[in-house]
Amino acid sequence: MNKIRIELLDIVALTVDLPEYNLYRGQVGAAVELLAGGAAFEVEFSDAYGGLRLRSGRTYESIGLRPEQIMVLHFEPASPDSVRSMVTV
């Protein structure tokens, strides 16, 4: 169960496949609207940055999703006390 609170404009990734919408686990979108009092979210999926055209991506799907269908992506350590370490394989 997703215990992290999802906020508007959070960057999220799908945790499930939705082939009927041509969306698959791992695809990244943005939570753009709260639905059903926060019980669901409108998530917008856009293509990548427009490169030489200097424009933002174009939306290719916008769909209502439940919190358990998405996860918030984090770009910083979860805790300020986290110590970075190198992982080798």
Rank of each mutant, 00 (worst) to 15 (best):
L34Y: 15
L14I: 12
H74V: 06
S82P: 02
E76P: 00
A13Q: 12
G29R: 01
G26F: 00
N22P: 02
D81M: 10
D47C: 07
L8F: 05
N2T: 12
V89T: 04
R84Y: 04
H74S: 15
E7R: 11
R58W: 11
G57V: 02
D10N: 15
V83W: 01
A13N: 09
S56I: 01
L73A: 11
S85E: 07
G38S: 10
A78C: 11
A39T: 09
T59E: 15
L14Y: 01
E61T: 06
D17A: 08
A31W: 03
L9F: 08
T15H: 03
A39E: 15
V12R: 05
T59R: 08
V16F: 05
L9E: 02
L54Q: 03
D47K: 06
T59P: 13
P77N: 10
V72A: 12
D47A: 07
G57H: 02
R55D: 00
D10H: 15
I4G: 09
V32D: 01
S62I: 11
E42A: 07
S62Y: 13
N22A: 14
R84Q: 06
V12Q: 06
Y21T: 03
P67R: 01
V32W: 00
R25T: 14
V43K: 01
V32G: 05
M86S: 08
A48E: 13
M86W: 04
V12G: 04
R5W: 05
V87A: 13
T88C: 00
T15S: 05
E42H: 12
A30C: 08
